[in-house]
Every structure is written in structure tokens, then in C-alpha cells.
Amino acid sequence: MRLMLTGGGTGGHIYPGLTLLRYLEKMYGSIEVLYVGSERGLEQDIVKRTGIPFVSIPAAGLRRQLSLSGLKTAWTTVRGYWKAKKLVRQFRPDVVVGTGGYVTLPVVFAAAAYNVPSVVWEGNARPGLTNQLCARKAYGVAVCFEDTKKWFPKANKVVVTGNPRASEVLEVDEAQLAAARRQYRLSPGKKLIVCFAGSRGAETVNEVWAKTIPKFAEKPDWQLLYVTGDKHYEAVQCSLSDVPPNVTVIPFVHDMPAVLPQAAALVTRAGSSTLAEICSFGLASILIPSPYVTANHQEENARRLVDKGAALMIRESELTPESLWKALLTVLETNQGDALRRAAKQLATPNAVRDLGALVMEAWETRRPS
């Protein structure tokens, strides 16, 4: 099989595609792959680390309103489409898989121009415009929530699979867990709190943590692993005058699945891949949805867990050192923490990558000679 993967901007669009690729290789043998990403997204670093062939194209978010900036992004998308068509001609994929982000649109549309079947995966409860448009050209759409189907009325086929990350993260072994303990100086005898605000970090969340961290001196049986995001690491370091010994501040974690199973509490955004990991591991979490995303979809994601008693949520507008500390006490020092863990585990989708892989193979079969 010749597979063209696309998706980018944030880790939530990148890691599911990589998980799918590893599954397909495991199940079906050697696969020739080309990853098409955007010129500025995190895929430039994440995908290249894997050694997978990578090409970037121009990509920008489409706007519903007519404006000068809207015309500029439309022109960028057109240039990306032309380059994507050239890549499709040269690589000759059997199937294209798009996992979201602006770059998905020109690649899926280019594939359709040459009658190459595509599968679009949507991780959020409410999809953005890009995937809604791509769905009209795709063989099938995979979603994570049953009620997300309503956003794809013109799609050929919509299947609920869940997030591929839900399957892969459970494959972490004891050697990887031990390596993470050594690397991040995790103490098994302490209650570990892991905090990360998405793959890029978040300024407001970092500001609140800077004021909260000194209180960890009062809780020697707790331990905080605080991941700031590369962009904010230096600023956070400068804002911290006195860091207790049970707090570790780092810019990024590349092996998060080896860290998360050891956490007693997780404080994070509400991206789809993160929620999949929360459910797979049965983690007690405090979700701080990003208010800066399209259609406030992270709060809609978080609601899927909160309404089931599987997570706590603090809106960023309500986030203070006091509200954060109160939530941590609730999770770590009351029975509610155990209730959150049980409810989260019940929402896990361990067969997500298998079901997505089946849809991709089904799309591929439409192109194979009979």
C-alpha cells in the first residue's frame, strides 16, 4: 500500500496519524508512506523525528467572512492545493488519510482530483470547517463521538471509531515507565500531578501555575511535573522565584504515554488525543479547555467527560490559583478522585485504531483492481 498521511498544526492532529501508520504496518506489513504537513506546524519536528518521509505545503485556515485576510488565506490554500496535486501525481498514493488541521484540505481535495480515495478522521466533538469540507470529497469519515455525526450530513459514510491514541498508549511497558521515572525524577511514593496545556503550552495557565507552585511546599507527599511548552519555558522559569523540591519544570515531554500512567492527577487542556489518553489510562483529570479554538470545541470535548462524571472542568475565565488548588485537593484527597478514574475508564475506546484501520483498508479496496 502507498499511503499519504496529512494533518498538522498541533499534536492532536499529528499523533493519531502516526499511531494509525504503526498499526497498519504491524497488521499488513511494509507500507510506503509520505507525510504531507504544513510549513509551520509541529509536524515539522514530530514527524521528522520518526524518520518518515515528510514534505510541507502552504496551508492556512479558511474564513467564512470575505476580507483581505480571508483572501490571503484562500490564496495560500490554492497554492497548497497546486503543490498537493503535484505530490499526488508523483507519489501515486492508494489512499489518503487526513487527521485535521488546515493542511488536510488541499491534500484531500488534490486526492479527489485524481480519484484517490481518502479517509478523514475528526477527533473533536464539533468539527472545524476544514474537515466538514473534506468530508464531501472523502470515501469515509471517522469520528470520536456519536453526536458528531450530525456535522457531516453530506458525507458518504460516517463511522464512530474513537481516537487511535486510545489504543496505542496502553502498549507502554515497565521498561518505558522506569525510564520515565529516571528521566523526570519521579518518586513512586508521592502523588504525581502532571500538568501540560497542549503541545504548544498556554500563557494564562502558566501564569496561574506560577502563583500556585509555591504552595507545593505545604504538600511534601505530592509531586508536580509541570510541562510549560517550548514557547513559554523561559518566561515561566523567570517568573518562578522559589521552586519547591517536589516540583519539576520542563519545556516538553516526547514520551508522555510513559508518564501519564504514573499520575494521580492530570491538569490539561481538552484536546481529543488528551481525552483519549485520560480514558485509556483511567486518569483523574482537571480540564482547562482552551477558549481560543474554533467554535469553542475544546469545551464541547470536555463536556463529554464532565457530564459522565469522568473529569472536572475549570474554564480559563474562572481559573485562579485558588480554584486550581481546590480542584487538586478534591482529586487527591477525597473519594471523588477514585470516582473520576472509574468513570473515565468506562469511556475508553481500546479498539479505535483497529476500527479506523478497517475504514482505511475498506477505502483502499475501492481502488484495487478486481
Score class of each variant (00 low, 15 high):
10 T>L: 12
17 G>E: 09
20 L>P: 10
21 L>R: 10
35 Y>K: 09
40 R>I: 07
41 G>V: 10
45 D>L: 09
53 P>T: 06
55 V>D: 03
60 A>Y: 00
61 G>K: 08
68 L>H: 05
71 L>M: 12
74 A>D: 02
83 K>C: 02
85 K>D: 02
86 K>G: 00
88 V>G: 06
94 D>Q: 04
98 G>T: 04
107 V>G: 03
119 V>N: 03
133 L>F: 03
144 C>G: 15
156 N>S: 15
158 V>L: 09
163 N>H: 13
165 R>G: 15
166 A>F: 01
176 Q>S: 13
203 E>L: 09
205 V>G: 03
205 V>M: 13
206 N>H: 05
214 P>H: 00
214 P>T: 01
227 V>N: 01
232 H>Q: 13
235 A>R: 11
242 D>H: 14
249 V>C: 12
249 V>L: 13
250 I>Y: 10
252 F>A: 00
254 H>S: 15
254 H>A: 14
266 L>S: 02
267 V>Y: 05
269 R>Y: 06
274 T>G: 03
278 I>P: 00
280 S>H: 10
307 D>I: 08
312 L>M: 15
315 R>I: 04
319 L>N: 08
321 P>Q: 11
324 L>K: 07
324 L>C: 13
325 W>R: 01
326 K>E: 15
328 L>H: 03
329 L>Q: 15
338 D>Q: 15
339 A>T: 12
342 R>V: 14
343 A>N: 15
355 D>L: 14
360 V>H: 11
363 A>G: 07
